[in-house]
Measured scan of single mutants.
Amino acid sequence: MVIEDPKTNKLIEVEKLPDGTYKVTIYDKKTGEKKTITMSKKDLEKLLKAL
């Protein structure tokens, strides 16, 4: 799943891993910076609600 946040000009890509956690990659379209973090479903839901 890919989500675009027009306010921050970032793309957020979410991928479910076999162990039940989620790999979240955040791309900054302005700088080209890429950050990848792994989080639980509960933390991911908090992140998505904040957008």
Rank of each mutant, 00 (worst) to 15 (best):
G32Y: 11
K49I: 12
T38Y: 11
K16P: 14
V24F: 01
E15W: 11
K46N: 11
K46Y: 11
V2M: 02
D43V: 02
L17V: 10
K42N: 10
D43H: 06
E33Q: 03
D28V: 01
E13P: 00
D28H: 01
I3D: 11
M39R: 01
K49Q: 12
L47S: 01
K34D: 06
E33C: 11
L11C: 03
E33A: 09
T36H: 09
S40N: 03
L48R: 01
K30D: 10
K34F: 12
A50S: 13
L48C: 06
K29N: 12
K49W: 03
K16N: 13
T38P: 12
P6I: 13
I3M: 02
T31P: 04
V2N: 03
Y22W: 09
D28R: 00
T25Q: 14
L51I: 03
I12L: 05
K23F: 09
I26E: 15
I12A: 04
M1E: 13
T38G: 11
K34T: 12
K16C: 15
K46L: 14
S40L: 15
A50W: 03
P6S: 04
L17I: 13
N9A: 09
D19M: 13
V14R: 01
T36W: 06
D5S: 02
P18T: 13
L44P: 00
K35V: 14
D28I: 02
L17W: 08
Y22M: 04
L17H: 10
I37R: 10
N9Q: 06
T38I: 10
M1R: 00
K7L: 14
K10S: 15
K30H: 14
I12E: 09
K30E: 14
K29F: 09
K35H: 14
T25G: 08
K42Y: 15
I3P: 08
I37F: 06
V24C: 03
K35S: 03
I26Y: 06
S40W: 02
T8D: 14
T38K: 08
K23Y: 06
K42H: 14
G20N: 14
G20F: 05
T21K: 03
T8I: 04
I26A: 08
V14Q: 01
I37Q: 12
K7P: 08
L48D: 04
A50N: 15
E13D: 02
A50F: 06
L44D: 00
Y27L: 03
Y22A: 08
K35E: 06
D19R: 03
G20H: 06
D43R: 03
Y27M: 15
T21W: 10
I26D: 04
E33D: 09
V2W: 01
G20I: 00
K10C: 11
K16H: 12
K7R: 03
K42S: 12
L44G: 03
T36C: 14
D19T: 06
V24W: 01
K23M: 10
K29V: 08
M39H: 01
L48T: 01
I37Y: 07
V24I: 04
V2S: 02
I3E: 10
D19F: 06
G20M: 07
N9I: 10
I12K: 01
K29R: 07
